[in-house]
Design a protein around this nucleic acid. Sequence first.
DNA 1: CTTTTTGCAAATCTTTTGCACTCTA
DNA 2: TAGAGTGCAAAAGATTTGCAAAAAG
Lengths: 140, 140
Amino acid sequence: MTSTDHGHTHGEPGAPVRPTRQRRAVAEALASFEDFRSAQEIHARLTERGEKVGLATVYRTLQLLSDGGEIDMLRTEDGEAIYRRCSATHHHHLVCRACGATVEVEGPAVERWTKAIAAEHGYAEIAHTLEVFGTCSSCR
Amino acid sequence: MTSTDHGHTHGEPGAPVRPTRQRRAVAEALASFEDFRSAQEIHARLTERGEKVGLATVYRTLQLLSDGGEIDMLRTEDGEAIYRRCSATHHHHLVCRACGATVEVEGPAVERWTKAIAAEHGYAEIAHTLEVFGTCSSCR
DNA sequence: CTTTTTGCAAATCTTTTGCACTCTA
DNA sequence: TAGAGTGCAAAAGATTTGCAAAAAG
């Protein structure tokens, strides 16, 4: 409930994380997808591949990875959480609302604008979310 | 599931909209708040003020207003929809994660960048969400 | 053996819907 | 009146949680 950070927050001691079959499975499923998927979809894939992993576990694992900054998480326009393995650089997404095709885009201009605006109003420890939705050419 | 528009989509013929007691009430509640509130909070205020309006109606009204572009709607980090009376222009928000203080900011640069990027990748009917979070000066 | 993980089902919570009933124009 | 709008309670969904059993170190 306080996982506000967009940046990575590794290194917290916490409790040891054990590499289990189900965690590996979730990681693999994540790796097998090109773009963002909901916990439900990930669980479905696992199931259809014969991997028996409880839905709750998928949620727990996804949350764990997300909190650790190891995967990207964003929200659909209707509030559903969707996840994806992420690259190292900070970027944003251009998502097709019909087929879900995602394009990663970088926006140095936006980053700069964000920092400037924030500083201008006296805000610190800036984080921002920016997602662009549209209909891709093949869905039109 | 198709209330995708972020921009204003006024003028659709649709059905006539009747000014009722409950709609007025919701509008007033909205006006009484300085920043973003959830449907539940708005309903709570209505109730504590003695206005009898069903929760479902609050949701329906909020959705109506939001679809008509008459109020702003955005999502909390945990996926909850929050609303606020908004100004006419398209803008974004700089929100203090500690106290919730919101500053409306305009970003012509961002708008331009968004359209450009999208067009470049062949995406149409663009919509975007951009929220900036930070800690305001008085909360530091 | 101790601690972390799971599974499952039950519980939450937000938001939506079905429907009979009440209003507005 | 006819069509729009409302209240309630039930239905959906997405997540989360409690707890006893299973796995990891």
